[in-house]
Lab assay of single mutants.
Amino acid sequence: MAAGGDHGSPDSYRSPLASRYASPEMCFVFSDRYKFRTWRQLWLWLAEAEQTLGLPITDEQIQEMKSNLENIDFKMAAEEEKRLRHDVMAHVHTFGHCCPKAAGIIHLGATSCYVGDNTDLIILRNALDLLLPKLARVISRLADFAKERASLPTLGFTHFQPAQLTTVGKRCCLWIQDLCMDLQNLKRVRDDLRFRGVKGTTGTQASFLQLFEGDDHKVEQLDKMVTEKAGFKRAFIITGQTYTRKVDIEVLSVLASLGASVHKICTDIRLLANLKEMEEPFEKQQIGSSAMPYKRNPMRSERCCSLARHLMTLVMDPLQTASVQWFERTLDDSANRRICLAEAFLTADTILNTLQNISEGLVVYPKVIERRIRQELPFMATENIIMAMVKAGGSRQDCHEKIRVLSQQAASVVKQEGGDNDLIERIQVDAYFSPIHSQLDHLLDPSSFTGRASQQVQRFLEEEVYPLLKPYESVMKVKAELCL
């Protein structure tokens, strides 16, 4: 049975990233139509530049190519590739079939990587351009969430054990800070992308030097003109047959890092959902379990974690691919890159769409948070109580021993009897502590235990987050809708 299948058929496997999760716009960027249309555009740009620099290419040939950029006979191309065992030459023939007058000058002087690699770089750039505003929107939604809850005390956790208090907004800023680093890295790697350009079979530009009869300047002009037509500021000066596969490492490393950030955020949300302090959106008709109707599973956060793990592992592909590119190139890269580049971007696209949807509907339960604080705060307040007693004339050592005994009794009630923490009640009825009984409410005010959390939130948002989001103001209103 021949390899390949009808990918629109229910009898043929289709990647869930495309069929179930990723956005239509990201799927289109990695589609065959987008790819092969870009090949034709690159052939047109090459012909236009070659004509401008004096090669015998007519206006009629150029116009014929322009008129057929979208006229792609995919069936013919597939048949040609089956016959020739070469995808680029299959599309040269297919393009030439609908451009008979231009057929002889299509791909003039070029090698397969002229269309293959340059198209990949265009796709990487455009895919990054799709991700950047999506990530900015996630940051914006979380920034709104953090600002609104900047002063809401909550129990902090280290080692997932109760620690000092923080605020809900401050905790959210930990998430935002990681995503801001990801946004900066995505922008950097996007701006650092260079075009492969017009380089020939081993990167020496020998074929173009021959076409222009040894004119170095025209060869350099050709490279520059096509690079500018493709919208790049610069091209690699040095290439082998391909652009260095280190570029793929750079791009997928940034995406993998984004995956790590999203995994951490969504894990926190899942843990908070278990504590009943916070939940992701839950639709009115949504079913959490087929057997347990009360369940409210954090399905979206779980999906993000599941896909983020996949995204983090994909960076190993370009690392290994770059390491086995012998001399000017081997074909070890080809099949692998067809999979890992598309999957990385479709996965990143999915987790950003999902995280935006989550961040637009996060639900906080202040009463649950308050109750958990009441359970733990008495123990945390013991040092403040000791200091207040010393100020009232008591002995630190005597007070410490009193607190120690009462704390152990209260802990026994919590752990052995399943009761509430009654340390404060014990202190309130103990005559030894009568000098500070009137101060206990103040000493137990949760806001006095959150330090500068709310001020940190305000400063972080104003100095770091809002300036970073400013270039994306025009796209901030787009909502994230999930079908599944």
Rank of each mutant, 00 (worst) to 15 (best):
R234Y: 10
I105A: 11
L132N: 13
D398A: 13
R459C: 11
P298Y: 01
L423P: 07
H310E: 03
T154H: 07
R234W: 06
A411W: 06
E302L: 07
S15V: 15
T347P: 11
D317V: 06
A143V: 08
T350R: 03
P435D: 07
H442Q: 10
V115R: 01
A344W: 04
E473H: 12
I72G: 03
L186D: 05
D117E: 01
H86P: 01
S412E: 12
M26P: 05
T204E: 02
Q241S: 02
P281R: 12
T201K: 02
Y34D: 05
R459K: 09
M89H: 00
T119I: 05
A410L: 06
S151V: 09
V247W: 11
M181I: 12
H310T: 08
I176M: 14
E376G: 02
I351G: 02
E80I: 15
A47C: 06
T313F: 08
Q416M: 12
K264W: 06
K284A: 07
C305P: 03
L346Q: 09
N118T: 00
L193I: 13
V92F: 07
L128D: 03
E463W: 08
M278L: 13
M380T: 01
V315C: 10
E60S: 13
Q210S: 12
Q285C: 12
K264L: 06
F157W: 11
V364C: 09
S395G: 11
R137Y: 02
R85I: 09
C304V: 15
Q375G: 06
Y243S: 15
E48I: 07
A335D: 00
V405A: 14
R300D: 04
Q320E: 06
C483M: 13
A206I: 03
S448K: 15
L252C: 14
E279N: 01
A348N: 04
R141Y: 14
Q408A: 14
S112W: 02
A431V: 10
N336Y: 02
R309K: 05
L272V: 12
L183C: 09
G214N: 11
Q41D: 12
R309T: 09
D398L: 14
P16I: 14
M476T: 15
E50G: 08
Q41E: 12
L69Q: 08
L108W: 14
V219W: 05
S9L: 13
H7W: 10
G8L: 15
E64T: 10
D333T: 00
D333W: 04
L135K: 06
T354A: 15
N297P: 03
E481F: 06
F157A: 11
A77H: 15
G203D: 01
D420S: 05
T242Q: 03
E250D: 12
Q458H: 12
L377R: 01
P298F: 07
Q205E: 07
V138R: 01
S454D: 13
